[in-house]
Computed example of a mutant assay.
Amino acid sequence: VGDAYTTDQKTIAGYTFKEVQGSATGTFTDQAQTVTYIYMKNNIPVNPISPQSSSNSTSRMNNTATSNSLPRTGEKQGITVLMFILGISLIGVSLILAFFKNVKNN
């Protein structure tokens, strides 16, 4: 409490500084000091795809599709399906055994 503070506006690629909320400089008190810097995302102009760059657009589309996919976790799909089938089979066998035990007791 009582020490001076100073905050700085940062340069962020693709964003433009809009405003600062709170005091960028001041003295610490027993209350919380909050300083918020607000940035606006820059508009990226959309360039029409020309026929000359069709091979480049294909590679860009492939990169986009790859970046929008989920990360690979190393889980094998076949093992998951096998465990699911095994679990369903065990439940089915348990139900059949319970049914025959119930019929035998009656």
Rank of each mutant, 00 (worst) to 15 (best):
E75M: 15
I96P: 02
F100M: 13
T64H: 11
K104N: 11
N68R: 13
I88C: 10
L95F: 04
S89E: 04
Q77I: 13
K76D: 15
L95W: 00
F99H: 07
R72D: 14
L86S: 07
Q77L: 12
R72H: 10
V93I: 15
V103A: 06
V93Q: 04
N68C: 10
P71G: 07
G74C: 01
V103C: 04
G74S: 03
L86N: 04
F84L: 14
K101M: 15
P71Y: 02
R72Y: 14
S67R: 12
N102P: 03
L90F: 06
L70W: 06
I91Y: 03
G92F: 13
I88A: 13
L70G: 10
L90R: 02
I91M: 07
K76W: 05
N106M: 11
G92P: 08
I85A: 08
I96A: 05
L82G: 07
F100K: 11
M83D: 14
N102D: 08
G92E: 09
F99I: 06
K76C: 09
V81C: 01
V93W: 09
L82T: 10
S67K: 10
F100T: 15
P71E: 07
I91D: 06
P71W: 00
P71I: 02
N106H: 11
F99A: 06
P71V: 01
A65T: 15
L70T: 12
V103K: 05
N68F: 14
L82Y: 07
N106L: 13
G78E: 00
N106C: 08
L97V: 12
G92V: 14
I85Y: 05
I79A: 14
G74W: 00
R72S: 13
N105E: 10
S69D: 01
I79V: 15
S94D: 04
L82R: 08
I88Y: 06
G92H: 08
G74I: 03
T80C: 02
K104F: 11
V93A: 10
L95Y: 01
V103N: 01
L70Q: 12
S67Q: 13
I85S: 05
N106A: 11
T66N: 10
G78C: 01
P71C: 02
T73Y: 00
T64E: 14
G78N: 04
S67W: 08
G87D: 04
F100N: 09
A98I: 13
N68L: 15
L97D: 09
G74V: 01
L95R: 04
G92I: 12
L86I: 09
T66L: 09
V93K: 03
T73Q: 00
L86P: 02
F84P: 04
L90W: 05
L97S: 14
I88R: 03
A65I: 15
T64R: 11
S89A: 09
I85G: 01
T66R: 07
G92S: 15
